[in-house]
Every structure is written in structure tokens, then in C-alpha cells.
Design a protein around this nucleic acid. Structure first.
Length: 268
DNA sequence: GTTGAGCGTT
């Protein structure tokens, strides 16, 4: 019943964008409009939706006509229980075109036809869409801690960072895919997140160890050649390889807890 | 039918 988001951005000349986070996936613009319109003149309410499923992404953008009203709405509606969930209302930090905006107001309006001094048309047409698409799909998997770093470089040289991310996007996607299959082990382990950061950092240093293809080489040292020891069962071989410290000296482990056990070395 | 940190479209 509402024309919000149906015809794109209506008129953003001096509007103040508000970012509404933590909303339910069922909340629509129509539900937010009367709520925000009570505190000011809402010119537009937009909720980004997934293009595949069409579901809401969990946040919305409410554009006010005046800043004071927007501020009022932020103070009043921030933390408001909407549809059984506390919403978070705050001024948008980025404009529709990823431009810097001040207090929700777009500082740099969309002026691509006139006013652009020497702004050559950036060769971004499909790459931008692909990038956004990739972001959206990984949104639902509650994974993307490293994306915070992306914000750091926001405004400086996105093009350069984009290329860098693009290169890492390949394995990142496949990795996220694997995670999507079993997101539980992430919580169970708790280190999966750290592992990712550590890996990314290592990669940032210049791919010092790209040869490491196995995720856990120490877990399976060499089970490929069970006959290496004379055709014996690998079980005995494993026993010799990893002699349990308790079997050899159980009290020593307790007495000398500071001493690094062979298992601790592998675990850490 | 699920999810839950974040920043946007014809």
C-alpha cells in the first residue's frame, strides 16, 4: 500500500537518513512509517531486501525532512520494542551511494551529470553489484567480523581496497560456504573466528605460507602410508607416534603442570 | 519455518 522503495529514491535533497537496526525480518516499511512519522516528517522509508529470497536484511532506512525531527526520532525510537524486538535507530553514516553524510544528511548529493570537476567515471559497473551481492549473501550467515576492517578504509581508496578484497574474495567465499554448512562448530570451537583473523593477517603479510593446503596437517600426519612401518596397523603406529604422557608418567603430568606437554604444544 | 552484525533501492 506504500510506494516506499518502489520507485527508487524519490528526492534526497535535504533529507536526513536514519538507520534502523535490529528490526525483525518481518517488519516492513509500512510498519515503520507510522512509527517514525509520529516524530517528524518522513519522506521515505526503505528496507533493503535480498534479491534472491526477497526477505528483509534486518535493517531499514528512514529519511526525515528535518534534522531535529530525525534526532527526536532517534532518541525516542532508539531501543523501542518493535514487533517484539528492540530496534536501534541512529543516523546513517553512509549515503545511498556510499558517500559520506553528515548527521544523516547527504553532504555530497548525487551529482554525476553536473558539478563533477574532474571525476572520471570509475570503471565500476558490474563489479560494484557483485561486491554488494556477495555482501548480502554472507549477511545471513552471521559471519563477517573482518568486514569491520573494510569500514576503516571507507573513504580513502575504496578502489584499491576493492581490488584487494576481490582477490581474497575467492577463497573467502568458499570458506564461508564451508562454514555455512556447519555454523555450530564455530560456536563450539570459539576459535574459528580467531583462526580466520589469524589466517587473514598471515596472508596480508605477503602469502608467506601459501603451501599450507591442509586445514589440519598435524591431525593426520601420514595416514596415507600405513604400510610404512612394515604393514602394521596404523593404530599401533599412532600409539608410538603419540605416546600418552599419562601412560608413561601420570603423576608427572600433575606434578609438573607447568611443563609443556606434547599435546599442549599441538593444541596451542 | 531458520538467522541477528551492520549502512540503501526503480
Amino acid at each position: 500500500m506504500s510506494h516506499f522503495g518502489r520507485s527508487g529514491p524519490p528526492d534526497i535533497r535535504d533529507t536526513f537518513s536514519l538507520l534502523v537496526l535490529n528490526i525483525t525480518f518481518r517488519t516492513t516499511a509500512d510498519d515503520l512509517f507510522p512509527l517514525f512519522d509520529k516524530y517528524g516528517k518522513v519522506v521515505d522509508v526503505f528496507i533493503p531486501r535480498d534479491r534472491r529470497t526477497g526477505d528483509s536484511r534486518g535493517f531499514a532506512f528512514v529519511r526525515y525532512k528535518y534534522q531535529d525531527e530525525a534526532q527526536k526520532a532517534v532518541e525516542k525510537l532508539d531501543g523501542k520494542l518493535v514487533d517484539g524486538r528492540e530496534i536501534m535507530v541512529q543516523f546513517a553514516k553512509y549515503g545511498p551511494n556510499a558517500e559520506r553524510i553528515d548527521k544523516g544528511r547527504i553532504v555530497e548529493p548525487v551529482s554525476r551529470s553536473k558539478g563533477s570537476r574532474s571525476r572520471s567515471p570509475r570503471p565500476r559497473s558490474r563489479d560494484d553489484y557483485r561486491e554488494k551481492d556477495y555482501r548480502k549473501r554472507s549477511r545471513s550467515r552471521s559471519r563477517g567480523r573482518y568486514e569491520k576492517e573494510r569500514h576503516r578504509s571507507r573513504g580513502r581508496d575504496r578502489d584499491r581496497d576493492r581490488d584487494r578484497d576481490r582477490d581474497n574474495r575467492h577463497r573467502s567465499r568458499s570458506r564461508s560456504r564451508s562454514r555455512s554448512v556447519s555454523p555450530d562448530y564455530r560456536k563450539d570451537r570459539g576459535r574459528g573466528k580467531y583462526d580466520d583473523e589469524r589466517r587473514s593477517r598471515s596472508r596480508s603479510y605477503g602469502s608467506a605460507s601459501p603451501a599450507r593446503r591442509s586445514p589440519s596437517p598435524r591431525r593426520s600426519p601420514s595416514p596415507r602410508k600405513p604400510t610404512s612401518r612394515g604393514g602394521s596397523s596404523d593404530a599401533r603406529n599412532h600409539k608410538e607416534r603419540s605416546p600418552t604422557p599419562k601412560s608413561i608418567s601420570p603423576r608427572r603430568c600433575v606434578a609438573d603442570s607447568r611443563s609443556p606437554s606434547p599435546r599442549s604444544d599441538a593444541d596451542e
